[in-house]
């Protein structure tokens, strides 16, 4: 990644806060959005970005986050549909150059990947990792 990016992260759950802490520590400018104010307690004391309380499916909240200026949008809220909507709004309305969405439902993930949204599916990733480990340990035994 280039030196310092402006990154908007939607969702401050386990994944969102992990990304926010890491990216902020790397010196990037970060805005994290979450509906629940208490979600921000997962951020490090050193986190130097901005916290925004609001529902990211409201365009107004994305405007407040200055999404139009963002280099990267990470849609990692709990709900798949929030991420899919926010990712598309980021790409098509705010013209964010790089957009990624976390989608837990493999069927939905597959569909939206084909529509041109960059998606990551934790379910298939974990499934593949587990199966690979199983296969390897099985071979090791043989």
């Amino acid at each position: 990644m280039p030196k310092s990016l402006f990154i908007v992260i939607v969702g401050c759950g386990r994944l969102g806060s992990h990304l926010a802490n890491g990216l902020s520590a790397q010196g990037h400018g970060v805005v994290v959005i979450d509906r629940r104010p208490e979600a921000f307690s997962a951020l490090d004391a050193q986190f130097s970005g901005f916290k925004l309380v609001g529902d990211a499916v409201e365009s107004e909240v994305l405007r407040q986050a200055r999404l139009d200026k963002a280099d990267l949008l990470l849609a990692v809220a709990e709900e798949d549909n929030v991420n899919l909507m926010v990712a598309q709004v980021g790409q098509k309305v705010f013209a964010v150059p790089r957009v990624m969405a976390r989608v837990a439902d493999p069927a939905r993930e597959e569909a939206y990947r084909q529509f041109g949204i960059q998606t990551v599916c934790p379910t298939t990733l974990a499934g593949e990792a587990l199966l690979t480990t199983l296969r390897e340990s099985g071979e090791a035994r043989r």
Partner: peptide
């Protein structure tokens, strides 16, 4: 919920 309506229609 707007996000659910959007995704259902798009799919």
């Amino acid at each position: 919920r707007d996000q659910d309506n959007l995704v259902a229609c798009q799919l």
